[in-house]
Design a protein around this nucleic acid. Structure first.
Length: 469
RNA sequence: GCCAAGAUGGCGGAGCGGCUACGCAAUCGCCUGCAGAGCGAUUUCAUUCCGGUUCGAAUCCGGAUCUUGGCUCCA
């Protein structure tokens, strides 16, 4: 039984999908106007973790994540770059996918784009106008929050008390009430000149940000979906508005479980370009590797702020390496493991189901990855201890299977190691011969050569273990 | 102003009512031609402050102090 924290109730709830055959998840995806930063990816990671956990627990999952490829920022920055909106957003969509791969984030079933869903948005707007929940003004369509009594139920904000921002939008668009939000925005003359518009009953328009998500989510799953994910900052107004639009139109509950991921901050401060503490994913991956970044995410619960600091990153790197070391050792030793030479260690074998149970319990408790990692470490230690005294094939096999099972749920150790070059293998072989003949100087110089090629050799009882540095 | 979240050892950072976090650092041992790396074990050391609940609290409940975040584009 999976328990998740539902923002709607502010409580942990037992998760029961409406359709036992398939869990429906909609995740807010990126706005493709620049390289996503590491905090963005923490949220995408969180959704990936959720999917993997559900699959581990035996569910079939369908995940849909949108790509916002038209909004104020994409229009503005594509203009600055003197590119068409399409070319510009395609470039950053590709970057986004590259980032997912770096973090072993599994692809969603679909990535619908805002620009491809205008028909649905226009239809939704029409329906809301018919119901008296929206109105047209100067070519834009706005949602009238005063007509929707449930407004504020997710964010727990009183719609009358929401502070009106000093945003330019307030005067830029003629709304009845400054708190009303746009479903469709009238395209500006400049936008029309660039071809950024769609024909609608109210003239040439482009989508409002909130509209696309409601439309694409319902397009994929119908009026009610199981889970909707996103970052905490989307609770208000984005998700609040999604609820208003969807429930206003259908009269049915839109989302059964809202799951929000906390932010990543840097040295105790919010990431921002002006503070100079803004990190894109490639920058950090460059230094630590994608799996270590993933490990960082895993080591802090998704509803807790992750304070990214140098010390924290180093810590994660060490912890990660220790786990990986054991994994590699198991893989390395297994082929040469003797069937009967060593006795099967009962204690080790019997501990495996216990670890498995503990691991599962941890994830079921609102995706408690820090605890799951703790169990993983226990397994690692247990494996290490066993390897010191015995190498029975059966035990090694079972340890490795267990190891891989944990790793798969957490999304670790998936990077396929590039094949070791023949050159390196030959050098190592020569070195072994030299060692057998006790030609230590020769052996050492060969080791140095191997190192130059970017590999290290460790002498073990089972022979030399080669690793990429 | 209105909502939230958090304060743990030399450092970083888990823990969510009783039981080992873990990593770094230190010590010992194993392994080794050497080296590195690895592995195991060990010591010292903490729970922001003040109350309360409890047989028992880092953990639950008040209060204080400090820090951070949201209320506006935002993962």
């Amino acid at each position: 039984m999976l328990e998740v924290y539902n923002t709607l109730s502010r409580k942990k709830e037992i998760f029961i999908p409406q359709d036992p055959a398939q869990v429906s998840i909609y995740a807010c995806g990126p706005t493709v106007y620049n390289l996503p930063h590491i905090g963005n990816y923490r949220t995408f990671f969180m959704t990936d973790l959720l999917v993997r956990t559900l699959e581990y627990l035996g569910y079939e999952v369908k995940l849909v994540m949108n790509i916002t490829d038209i909004d104020d920022k994409t229009i503005r920055d594509s203009g600055k770059a003197e590119m068409t909106l399409k070319t510009f957003t395609e470039k950053y969509t590709e970057e986004f996918f590259k980032g997912l791969d770096l973090l072993n984030i599994k692809r969603a079933s679909e990535y619908p784009k805002a620009t491809e869903n205008l028909a649905g948005m226009i239809k939704l707007s029409q329906k809301l106008i018919e119901k008296g929940l929206a109105y047209e003004k100067e070519g834009s369509v706005y949602f009238k929050i005063s007509s929707f009594p449930n407004y504020g139920k997710l964010s727990k904000l009183d719609s009358k008390k929401i502070k009106i921002g000093a945003s330019v939008d307030v005067d830029e668009y003629a709304k009845d009430n400054p708190r009303d939000f746009a479903l469709l925005k009238a395209s500006s003359p400049k936008e029309i000149m660039r071809g950024i518009y769609y024909e609608s009953p109210w003239g040439k328009v482009r989508p409002g940000w909130h509209t696309e998500c409601s439309v694409m989510a319902m397009e994929a799953f119908g009026p009610t979906l199981d889970i909707h994910t996103g970052g905490v900052d989307l609770i208000f107004p984005h998700h609040e508005n999604e609820i208003a639009q969807a429930e206003g139109a259908t009269g049915k509950p839109f989302v059964r479980y809202w799951i929000h991921g906390e932010h990543l901050i840097v040295n105790g401060e919010k990431m921002s370009k002006s503070k100079g503490n803004f990190f894109t994913l490639p920058e950090i991956v460059e230094e630590y590797g994608g799996e270590v970044v993933r490990f960082m995410f895993l080591s802090v619960h998704y509803r807790k702020k992750l304070d990214y600091t140098k010390a924290f990153a180093e810590n994660a790197k060490n912890n990660y390496s220790r786990l990986r070391e054991t994994f590699e050792k198991l893989e390395f030793l297994l082929p040469s493991a003797n069937l009967s030479h060593y006795p099967a260690d009962r204690k080790t074998l019997e501990s495996l189901p216990l670890f498995e149970a503990e691991f599962k319990t941890a994830l079921e408790a609102d995706l408690d990855t820090p605890k799951a990692l703790k169990v993983f470490r226990k397994l690692s230690r247990s494996a290490n201890t066993y390897l010191e005294k015995g190498k029975n094939r059966e035990v090694l096999e079972k340890l490795l299977i267990q190891y891989k099972s944990f790793a798969a749920v957490l999304g670790l150790f998936e990077k396929k190691d590039k094949k070791i070059p023949i050159e390196v293998l030959k050098l190592v072989e020569k070195r072994e011969t030299a060692r057998e003949n006790k030609q230590w100087e020769k052996a050492d110089s060969l080791r140095a050569k191997v190192k130059e090629l970017g590999y290290s050799v460790q002498d073990t009882k089972a022979g030399p273990q080669i690793k990429k540095i």
